[in-house]
Design a binder for these strands. Structure first.
Length: 573
RNA sequence: CCCCUUGUAGUUCAAAGGAUAGAACGAGGGACUUCUAAUCCCUAAAUCGAGGUUCGAUUCCUCGCAAGGGGACCA
């Protein structure tokens, strides 16, 4: 990439001038009229080299000129010593050709070449509803997975579900109290209504657990049973409920365009978790306290947490240790990401510290990404209290709005259905991914979901528009050309398209899909501006061929960029 | 009480220690006989407070203030 070349050459120049390990940035000035790239090296090292930054800038420029970087047309000094670099028109025209030839591979880079990356995300629990918090984690995880793939890594997707543990016991307690409804669901229920029913039973069981001492004891007993030998009724309810949940999740993953390579369950990690903790109890990594086995996190300025409870059952902590091991056995990763809401940040700090004591090499490769929480205007969502928005019902509500907007479009029913879903998910994905990870989203149906302005549909529409131009060109037989018309003023669009791979690199380094969103918004805005000024497909216009090339390249970058976000381009909208 | 995170236009979000702090929604004004107006163009509008580091701070440090999350047998 050109960016790297410029950085490398400038670094060498500064080194020759006596700077050790120069650190400066090569960036695009926010104001495009200032240049295509900007260097702040002279600003930073002026004082250290005992020179006026402006003089140093002159020297750096003259050295850069000697190095003959063919893409550069001119260099300016601006401000207090910025070096602003302008690129040649030919470079932009050539990059259009490169984009179109690379097609769906444009934007693929090599920063993670040869690396194996494991990424765990979504993690819904059977017996609970798949709500929009899971959706949020899924959007972020899936987008990161795709960005890592574009950076050259081999990526495997992991999903981890809690099919044992107290929450399951609570749900089963609730189901046992409502056997007649369970039977009804088994005989007449639909997949979605069954999932809903399970969620209600969980909320009921949780309420009882907190309020009713007798129920609480029964739930604790059910929990022990779940881990060990299950009696007939428990076993029957457990298997049925678990399967209903998994069927529902499978359908949702299909809607979400996510395919997991590995699915693990807590029932698989529980036994090994206990073994690991007990093994390292002997080595004083864990200690007994009040009949439970804990990890004394306070030593490391972290929380002390229970790994095996006083009933001799593993908590999530112990199971997570085993999970790290099992993941590595099934896929020997170089890097392992775990994507969850940031409410468990402190929890993961403890688990990773404990893992470090057991498997330092695995702990070192593992990174927890805690994204912001999806909150309702009324406050935190909780499946315990039942104050959640189920993913499917939200999707349905949005689809209804879009259907109304599209009522005048003449499309086949199937085409329309697909378009509606693509747009609904596009709007949702955008709402989640538009902010840097780590920040909470207050999810207000009317405010968070936008179909105009900065929004998913805006990006989809822009791409859609470009593609209709391409269709139109095909109809009249207009071919594209990569030679710039003489005296044709430079478009911002030309100056943005080639940057896509740089943005992919940044998004990967920062684990931040938001970087792709910002870039695509800027790109789409400039395309729409171009589109409104210029008639693109026009057989009487000699510049039409180049404008067509520009449009093709724009569409390609949009297609690839939206793919990284998981946003599909509807065939009609 | 302790730990972590976050405070930017009326609102929802950007900003890689840099140049005149960008967008969008909302407000006001304008543009469809045209390749899709889910669009485009114009106007008004913001860095929680006080110090410090730096040539330069929305960004880093300290102290306040405010909001959220976490703090032993849930995750």
């Amino acid at each position: 990439m050109l960016e790297k070349k410029i950085k490398l050459e400038t670094t060498e120049i500064l080194k020759k001038m006596g700077v050790r390990g120069p650190k400066f940035i090569v960036e695009h000035p926010t104001d495009m009229s200032l240049g295509d790239y900007s260097l702040n090296g002279a600003l930073i090292y002026g004082k250290k080299l005992n020179k006026n930054p402006l003089d140093l800038a002159v020297e750096i420029i003259s050295e850069l000129k000697k190095r003959n970087i063919p893409e550069i047309s001119k260099m300016d000094i601006a401000g207090f010593g910025f070096i602003n670099i302008f690129l040649k028109d030919d470079f932009f025209a050539n990059s259009l050709e490169k984009i179109i030839k690379s097609s769906r591979n444009f934007g693929k880079i090599k920063s993670n070449q040869g690396k194996k990356i494991a990424i765990e995300y979504t993690d819904p629990n059977p017996f609970k509803e798949f709500h929009i918090g899971h959706m949020m984690t899924n959007f972020i995880g899936e987008s990161l997975a795709r960005i890592f793939e574009f950076s050259g890594a081999e990526v495997k997707r992991f999903c981890y579900s809690g099919d044992v543990g107290l929450h399951v016991a609570k749900a089963i307690y609730g189901l046992k109290q409502n056997l007649h409804l369970l039977l009804w669901q088994k005989l007449f229920g639909q997949q979605t209504s069954r999932a809903r029913f399970l969620g209600d039973c969980y909320a009921y069981g949780d309420k009882k657990y907190r309020e009713d001492e007798k129920a609480r004891q029964q739930i604790v007993e059910i929990n022990k049973e779940i881990y060990g030998q299950k009696k007939f009724l428990t076993k029957f309810i457990y298997n049925l409920g678990r399967q209903w949940s998994l069927d529902e999740f499978a359908e949702i993953y299909d809607i979400l365009d996510t395919k997991f390579d590995f699915s693990f369950f807590e029932s698989q990690t529980a036994i090994r978790g206990v073994e690991l903790v007990k093994e390292y109890l002997a080595k004083d990594i864990f200690v007994f306290s009040d009949q439970a086995i804990i990890f004394p996190g306070e030593k490391y300025n972290l929380h002390t947490r229970v790994f095996i409870n006083s009933h001799n059952l593993p908590t999530y902590e112990a199971k997570d240790l085993a999970l790290a091991e099992i993941k590595y056995e099934s896929y020997p990763y170089d890097l392992s990401f775990i994507v969850t809401g940031n409410e468990v940040n402190d929890y993961f700090a403890v688990v990773l510290k404990a893992l470090e004591e057991i498997y330092p090499n695995l702990a070192q490769r593992t990174k927890h990404i805690g994204h912001g929480m999806l909150k309702l205007p009324s406050g935190k969502m909780s499946s315990r209290t039942g104050s959640v928005i189920a993913f499917k019902s939200l999707l349905k509500d949005i689809e209804k709005i879009i259907e109304e907007k599209m009522s005048e479009r003449l499309l086949s029913k199937k085409e329309k259905q697909q378009a509606i879903q693509d747009i609904a998910l596009g709007a949702l994905r955008f709402a989640v991914l538009k902010q840097s990870p780590g920040k909470d989203i207050i999810f207000d149906f009317n405010k968070s979901l936008s179909f105009e302005g900065d929004s998913g549909p805006y990006l989809q529409y822009s791409a859609r528009r470009a593609e209709s131009c391409l269709d139109e060109a095909k109809k009249i037989g207009l071919e594209c050309s990569f030679s710039r018309p003489d005296n044709w003023p430079l478009e911002n669009l030309e100056r943005l398209l080639y940057r896509f791979p740089e943005e992919v690199a940044r998004a990967g380094e920062n684990s931040s899909p938001q970087i792709i969103i910002s870039y695509l918004l800027n790109l789409a805005g400039n395309f729409n501006n171009f589109y409104s000024r210029e008639k693109i497909v026009d057989k009487d216009d000699p510049t039409a061929s180049y404008k067509l090339a520009l449009t093709m390249a724009f569409f390609q970058v949009m297609e690839n960029g939206l793919y990284l976000l998981g946003i599909r381009i509807p065939s009609k909208m």
